[in-house]
Amino acid sequence: MMIRAVVFDLDGTLLYTLDALSYCMSKTMRHFGLGDIDNEHTRYFVGEGARKFVDRSLIYNGDKDLKLAKKAYEVYDEIFEKDCLRGVKPYDGIMELLQELKNLNIKTVVLSNKSQLGVEKNIKDVIGEGVFDLIYGEREGIPKKPDPTSLNMIIKELGFSKDEILYVGDTATDMQTALAANVISIGVLWGFRDEKELRENKADYIIEEPKEILDIIIEAQR
């Protein structure tokens, strides 16, 4: 078996974005006189797109009927556009991994539930242009992860078979996406969730450092 492409989740996998997400949501909640959303709650509220993040934050603050949701979506989008890069950085070892994958002629892709513009801005300003072969964020008319539609679209666009793909993420949503698309999943322990969640959602591999992805690729080629 030859691995020809690695598909990465963004938040909690490639980039540390927890401070930015917590800051933007806390600022949104304060706009409505509500309480902050700290990092520990943020890590469990995110992963299924901005709207779900807003909904969970409002419910946490007592708006169980989501009466403020429509306006809160707009406020969050405005704040996020300005502050989405606050404290954002690649996890240790990610830049080196991406260079090694390029050296091996392995395609790299980003697949996130964050908006397309948000993903592109994060990648362009933090990692750089021309690093990834494809960038997939939330797109109108395409269901978000864990629905496998976007991942299947990526595989089709690359022209590879499913056993030539690795999917790397840090949450149940990511593992479920890989499982639904029938591709090999790698759960990372440096992200937003824990080992228990990854195991319960049938991660094929669980790793502690980005460089372990290279070991998995070498193992697959034996």
Rank of each mutant, 00 (worst) to 15 (best):
E209I: 15
A172V: 14
E120I: 07
I135P: 07
E81N: 14
L158S: 06
F32Q: 02
R30C: 04
D125Y: 12
K52P: 07
S112N: 07
A181I: 04
K67H: 11
D147L: 08
F45Y: 12
I142T: 14
R43A: 11
E138C: 12
I135G: 13
G62A: 03
I94K: 01
E140Y: 13
A72S: 04
I216Q: 11
E200Y: 08
F32M: 00
D204M: 12
N122D: 09
L189S: 15
V7G: 05
L111W: 05
D77S: 15
M1Y: 10
A172K: 13
V188Q: 04
S26K: 00
E197S: 14
P90Q: 02
M29F: 01
I207C: 15
L15F: 02
A178I: 02
G141V: 06
T28D: 01
Y44H: 11
V119A: 08
S22C: 05
E78Q: 11
G137C: 06
G187V: 05
F80P: 00
P90M: 03
E164W: 06
A220Y: 15
Y60M: 08
D92L: 10
A220L: 12
V126T: 10
G62I: 08
D63L: 00
E96T: 14
V126H: 05
E197A: 13
I207M: 11
Y76P: 01
F53G: 01
V119H: 07
I217F: 06
S115D: 10
K27F: 02
M95R: 09
E120F: 12
I213Q: 02
L85T: 01
E74Y: 15
L14C: 00
E157I: 03
R199C: 13
F32S: 00
F80E: 00
Y91M: 03
D147V: 08
L198D: 03
A180T: 10
S57C: 05
K89M: 09
A181M: 05
G118W: 06
E195V: 07
K27R: 08
L158I: 03
D215S: 15
I59V: 14
N122V: 12
E195P: 06
Q99I: 10
N103W: 06
L85R: 00
Y23M: 06
E140M: 10
R4K: 14
H41E: 12
F132K: 05
M95Y: 08
K107M: 07
S115L: 09
A203V: 04
K67F: 09
V75D: 03
I79V: 08
V46K: 05
E195Y: 11
V183A: 06
N122Y: 14
I155E: 02
D55W: 04
G12W: 01
Y60W: 10
K121C: 11
N182K: 10
D38P: 07
F160L: 09
L104T: 12
F132C: 09
L58M: 00
S115T: 14
E200C: 13
L134Y: 13
G93Y: 06
I3A: 04
K114A: 04
M1S: 14
S26I: 00
K114S: 03
H31R: 03
K211I: 15
N103V: 11
E157N: 09
E209G: 14
A181Q: 05
L18H: 03
L117P: 15
L85V: 00
E140L: 11
E208Y: 15
E212R: 14
K107L: 07
I94W: 02
L151F: 04
L189R: 11
E209Q: 15
K89H: 12
S150W: 05
V168R: 02
